[in-house]
Simulated scan of single mutants.
Amino acid sequence: MIIFNYLLVCLIFGTTFLAIKVGVDASAPPFFSAGLRFFIAGLLLFGWLLWRKKATLALLFRKEMLFTGIGLTFGTFSTLYWAEQYVSSGIAAVLSATGPIMILVLQTFVLRLKATTLSVFGSILGFAGIIILLLPQLAVSANLVWVIGSVAILVGELFYCMGALYSKKVIQQFPEASPIALNAAQMICGGLLLLVLSFFTEHVEVQSLFSPKAAGSLLYLIVIGSMVGHSLFYWLVAKTNPVFPATWLYISPLIALAVGVLFYGETITWVTAVGVVTVIAGTICANLDSLRQLMLRRKTA
């Protein structure tokens, strides 16, 4: 079940980059559409859990939900949505793949946790593959706005990593709460912050959200990207650890690039193919220790 849900998260999150790009290209205000996506998704999920008496309203007013929402939703997606105005969906996915490496660095140097040699090697190898994927695009896309957009995505990934690590602590702090309820609460908080940011920075024309592309993008991101994808991610964090689920960021560039070729007219060169193989090899190495531990737990159980 863990492996199946992990692969499903990889598939879902790999396609969300193009969905965001489609919405942004359709003139949907980035902060407003991001805020609407997460606030509606969180509200629907939390309302469903309230109806089933698996969540309480008091959860929404905990500071832990606000801090998690700042990391996993507000900081991550305010930068990603803004950057995808200037950076392609494939490159956005590639840059997002720095997440597992940042998590390992934070765990090793900030939390003083020991990382295995194989995990470190896998992360370095995966990052090398990301650089190989990135280099051809740098040759044709390098300009000031593109660079700022790329840096913004990296800053967002730092927020994401801190949120993923903090969310593990929150899950342990609220053992009686469903991981889905915790995820819904943080999405509501993060979505509200995005809407506040939009109020002060964007001029929103509501009709722009009703074009077929913008509406389709928003619907897909609310239901599949947020309600399904982020709930599965939170479940994986609860069942494993913050590093293992976050390695979907190594797989998502491959999916995002493939989707871009099939539906958005992007091309793949032989250099990209080398990068793909390197990323897959790095992902296997980075995950091998976690997979062994999971298999041992299953055998013991």
Rank of each mutant, 00 (worst) to 15 (best):
L294V: 01
E266M: 09
A215C: 08
Q186E: 15
V271Q: 15
L118D: 06
F210D: 06
V145D: 11
Q85E: 11
A26Q: 09
V105M: 12
F244G: 10
A41G: 06
L144T: 05
Q293V: 11
G47Y: 02
Y160S: 09
A258D: 10
L106A: 11
G42W: 04
Q172I: 04
S290T: 00
Y166V: 10
P245T: 01
L66K: 04
Y264R: 14
M227W: 07
A258C: 12
Q137Y: 05
T56L: 03
L288T: 00
G275F: 07
F199E: 13
V237M: 13
I224D: 08
L44E: 03
T16C: 10
W48K: 06
Y6W: 10
L60K: 10
H230T: 00
A139V: 08
L18C: 06
V271E: 13
C189R: 15
A177D: 09
F38I: 12
E64L: 06
G229K: 03
L80D: 04
S226M: 10
K239T: 01
V271N: 09
A184F: 09
R52W: 00
V155D: 02
G71D: 07
D289Q: 14
G275N: 12
N5H: 11
A238H: 07
S96P: 00
G163D: 09
Y250H: 15
M65H: 04
G149M: 10
G225W: 02
K21I: 04
S217I: 12
V94S: 07
F200S: 15
S27P: 00
A258I: 14
L249H: 13
G99M: 14
A26V: 09
I20A: 05
L138D: 02
I130P: 04
A93M: 09
L288S: 11
T79N: 08
P175E: 11
T201M: 13
T247I: 14
V223H: 03
L135V: 15
F244I: 00
V259E: 12
F174G: 11
S178A: 05
L80P: 02
I2T: 14
A55E: 02
A181Y: 07
T108P: 01
S211R: 13
A238R: 12
F174I: 12
G191T: 02
L296H: 06
I153Q: 05
I103D: 09
F31I: 08
F38L: 07
G23V: 03
K213P: 08
T98M: 12
K299C: 05
I284M: 10
I171F: 08
I132A: 11
G69I: 06
P136R: 04
L209F: 14
V276N: 04
G282Q: 06
Q107K: 13
C10L: 07
T108V: 03
A214N: 11
V196W: 01
I222G: 04
